[in-house]
Nucleic acid binder design. Sequence first.
DNA 1: TGTTGGCACTCGGGAAGACAGAGTGCCAGG
DNA 2: CCTGGCACTCTGTCTTCCCGAGTGCCAACA
Lengths: 337, 337
Amino acid sequence: MVDDRRLAVLRAIVEDYVSTNEPVGSKALADRHNLGVSPATIRNDMAALEDQGYIHQPHTSAGRVPTDKGYRLFVDRLSQVKPLTAAERRAIETFLAGAVDLDEIVTRTVRLLAQLTRQVAVVQYPSLTRSTVRHVEIVPLSERRVMLVLITNTGRVEQRVVDLPDSIADDRVAHLRSVLNAALDGCGLAKVSDVVADLPERLPPEDRPAMITLLSVILETLVERHEEKIVFAGAANLAAADFSVGLRDVLEALEEQVVLMRLLGETGDLSELTVRIGSENPYTGLRGTSFVAAGYGAGDKELARLGVLGPTRMDYPVTMGAVRAVARYVGQILAGS
Amino acid sequence: MVDDRRLAVLRAIVEDYVSTNEPVGSKALADRHNLGVSPATIRNDMAALEDQGYIHQPHTSAGRVPTDKGYRLFVDRLSQVKPLTAAERRAIETFLAGAVDLDEIVTRTVRLLAQLTRQVAVVQYPSLTRSTVRHVEIVPLSERRVMLVLITNTGRVEQRVVDLPDSIADDRVAHLRSVLNAALDGCGLAKVSDVVADLPERLPPEDRPAMITLLSVILETLVERHEEKIVFAGAANLAAADFSVGLRDVLEALEEQVVLMRLLGETGDLSELTVRIGSENPYTGLRGTSFVAAGYGAGDKELARLGVLGPTRMDYPVTMGAVRAVARYVGQILAGS
DNA sequence: TGTTGGCACTCGGGAAGACAGAGTGCCAGG
DNA sequence: CCTGGCACTCTGTCTTCCCGAGTGCCAACA
C-alpha cells in the first residue's frame, strides 16, 4: 500500500513537472491529484523518494524535481504508451503517402515526427545490410572512369565514381555490366561476398582488374555506408523548450554524425521502443536530454531506426506513442513501394 | 575631407562594434583608431551620421550601433574582401579533395564553410537546369512500375518511381531504354522538351503511352526539382553568437526550404558576391541576420549558389572572403570530376 | 567654418536590501 | 500510520540607489 502510494506520488510528480516545468510541492500535488492523503503525508513519501534517489530538490525550500532515475522508473513501470488520436493517424497517413522516392520518404518522416512531438526528430536511412541488389548500372565518364550506380530492392540508389586500373572501351563496359547484373541480381550482402571471390576467375584475364575494382567498390558501398546517413529536423523546437543551458551542445551533437549514430545504434533490441534518459546517453552534451527510439522496416525486416530527442522532462507516453506509430507507418510505406 | 572623415568614423564604428559587440562611444573611437581628431569632433560626426540613418543609439546615453543602412554602406564602399590565409586555402583544398560523389562534395562544402566562418552555411545542390542527360536507366520493379534513374553530366543522380499506364514486358522496357538513351544522350533541358514532342510519334503505338509517361517524368524532374535541395550546417554556431532574440525564428527559417530558396534564389547576378543585410532579407524571421552568397559552378557554368548566414554584426570582409574562396574551390572540384 | 575642451545632464545596469510566498521538516495528537 | 500545526529556510522579485559611460551643447580658438 505504502509503496503503491509512493509510486503514485512519483508518477504525479513527473506528470506535474512535465506539464508545468516547475518544481512541484506537496500541497500542489494534494490539490491536483486525488491521492486521498494530506500534504503532510505526501511530504513523508517525498522524503523517502528523495532518499532513494528518484527525486531531488533544487534548493532547501523548493519543490521536488524527478531525477533521471525517477524518469526511468516512470517510463518502466508507471506509464503506458499513449496511442495517437485518430486525427493524428490520418494526418500521418496522408502526409507520408505522397512521397515518391526514398529520399522523400525519409525527409517527410523526419519532419512529420518533429512536428508531431514538437521536438527534434532523427531518422536513419534504411540500412543496406539486409537489402538486395536490384540492378547495377555502369556509366562511362571518361576513359578510365565510370560512375557506378547501385539500385537496391528497398529503392535506395547508391552512386560512386570509380577510377579503373586500366582504360576500358565502352563495349567492354557494357559487357561487364551485363555479367555483373546476371551475377548479382537479387543478392544480399552475404551472397555478394561470394561473388566477389568467384566472378573474376570466370572472366577473361583482361577484364579481371576492372571487375575486381568494381566489385570491391560495390561491397564497400553495401557494407560500410549502410548506416551512414542520418538526418534530423525540428531544431527550432529546441529553442522553444527553454533549454537555457546546453542548447549549443545539443546542436553540436546533432550535427555530429558519429554522435547520432551512437545514439541510434547502441540500443538493444531493434524491434522495441528504446528510451535513453539524461545521463544514460552516450555523449556528455546530451545530459539533460532524453532519446526515444524505435526500429522500422519493410515487413518484418528491420532496416533502420528513428527517434526523437527532447528535454528529459518530456511527455514520455505521448512521445513514445508518436515514435512507435510513425515507425510502423514508415514500415508500411516501405513495404508497399 | 569632412565627408571622408565621417566615412572613416563609420568604418571605425562598424569594426569596433563587430569585434566588441558593444555600442561604441566617441572616446573609445578616438583611443583605438588614430583619426587625428578629438572625441568632441567625432561626436559631431556621429550626430551627422545618425541624422543620415547610418548609426543609431540604443539609449540616450549609450554609444552608437550601425544600422542596416550603415552596414550596407560599409560593405559597398568602406571595406574590401579579405582573402584567406594560405593555411586556410590549403585546408579547403585537402578537405574538399577527398569527396567521392556529389552528395559528399556538398556535405563537405557546407561543413567547411560553417567551420571556416563560425556561422551557418547554406549550400544549394547544383542545378539541373543547365546540366545535360548522361544516361537514363529504367529498372522494372513490378508489372506496371519502373524505377527511373537519371544521371547527369554533373554527376547528379535523380531517381523516381514511375507508375505506367499499362503493364509492360521486360524486353520492351529494355527497348524503351535504348531508344531513350539514344535520343537524350547529351541533351540539355531545352533539347529534352523537343524530344518530348517528337519521340513518341516515331514509336509503335503500343509503346507510346509508356514513353509519354516516362518523358514527362524526366522533364518534370529536370525542371521542377532543379533547385529543390538545400542543406545547411553550423546551427550550433548560432547558439554561440549570443543571438538572444530570434534564435528560434532563425532555426525555423533554416528548416523551411521555401525560405532558403528565396534567400539563395532572389539575388541578382549569379557570378557575384551578394550580401543581404538585416531587413533586406525576404523573411521577417531573418531580420537581425545577414546573408552572404555566391554562385558556384563547374568551369564557367553557374550551377547553384551557396552562402553564409550570420548576425548582422558579422565580420563582412572575412565572411565574404571565405564564401568567395569556397565557391571557387567547389567549382574547381566539380569541373575536375 | 571647423575643431576643441569643458560641463551639466541622462539613462542603463549592477549592487544591496526588503519582502512575500512557497515549501519543507518535525512534532505531537488522533 | 496519518494529519494539522508551526517555525524555519530559501529563492525570486521588486525597489532603491548609485556609478559611470556617453551625450549634446556652448564658448573659445585657429
